[in-house]
């Protein structure tokens, strides 16, 4: 079994990550809060890991809910 391809949604703070998590859960997009990978940012906070295939639906859902997103990047 191959490891799934992930993307991460980076946000400005843990508060924003928790808000993003709620929105994604509401629309049924599987996600998990994880520490921000160092190669993506030197920030010490958390980001939202999603499946790469969900990147576009996630972007749209977060935008529709008015959640400020820094970026969505492949892991």
């Amino acid at each position: 079994m191959t490891r799934p391809e992930y993307a991460v949604v980076t946000v400005y703070s843990t508060s924003h990550a928790l808000r993003a998590e709620k929105v994604l859960q509401r629309v049924g997009i599987t996600n998990k809060l994880i520490p921000v990978p160092r190669r993506i940012s030197s920030d010490c906070g958390v980001c939202v890991r999603i499946l790469q295939v969900d990147a576009e639906p996630a972007r749209r859902a977060l935008e529709a809910a008015g959640v400020e997103v820094e970026g969505i990047q492949s892991l």
Partner: peptide
């Protein structure tokens, strides 16, 4: 909001 581990996220959830 200081660390990425489960308990830290749980504390963040309480505050949120």
């Amino acid at each position: 909001g200081r660390s990425g581990h489960r308990l830290s996220i749980e504390a963040g959830r309480i505050v949120y």
